[in-house]
Amino acid sequence: MENKHTGDLVRANGYAFFSACFYPPGDSFTTDIENAGNVCGAMAEDIRCLARNTDVEDIKRDYVRLFVGPFKTLAPPCGSLYMEQDGCFMGDSSVDVQRWYEEDGLTNTLHEPPDHVIVELEYLHFLAGQALRTADDGRSDQADRYREREQQFLSLHFARWAMAFANNIETNAETEFYRCVARIMSHFLKESAIHLPIASA
């Protein structure tokens, strides 16, 4: 129980932190990253350090090059761009992601497709967080269902493209900040996959 609890917490906080990393950097970016990574302990330390020590204008420029384009997007940030033929936004996989959210009574309010990395990571945060909350509430069956959903969502969606996405970042980023985010996120996802506690296990 304690292991599951810790695992859920680490994953919930981790997903939230990485989601924060993919927002367009505003002028308070450094503070945002500092605060978001606060609960992630050592995992976030390198990233937070780079956020402190990199010129925010360089980070902004790199963000646009990697995730926005506007000419050629070097690390397209949505699932359908990797998983579907011709890779456009709002593919069938994007609609499926939307359905997942709806099943949990959620709606995407970000001005991006439902399968944008920010939103998918936040959804994973939600699932891990719900597992934690319902477990703490004494509803362990419900907690296990949330963990199953988290694993299914990863295997059907996020994990299917996250590595290619991270690879695009590592290959094309000009700032060590984003390279570091990609590296540590990849590591985090691999670790989470191993340790995701499922009822059937």
Binding site: A12, N35, N38, V39, T107, E122, F126, R133
Partner: peptide, 29 residues
């Protein structure tokens, strides 16, 4: 995002005190 970030941090802190974690939403509602 400050609200989201604050929520996450607060979530962690609250948990340490034994209260229930609540996922904090920003992009989703």
């Amino acid at each position: 995002r400050k609200s989201f970030v604050k929520g996450v941090a607060a979530g962690g802190a609250i948990l340490a005190g034994g209260s229930v974690f609540a996922p904090t939403l920003c992009a989703l509602a």
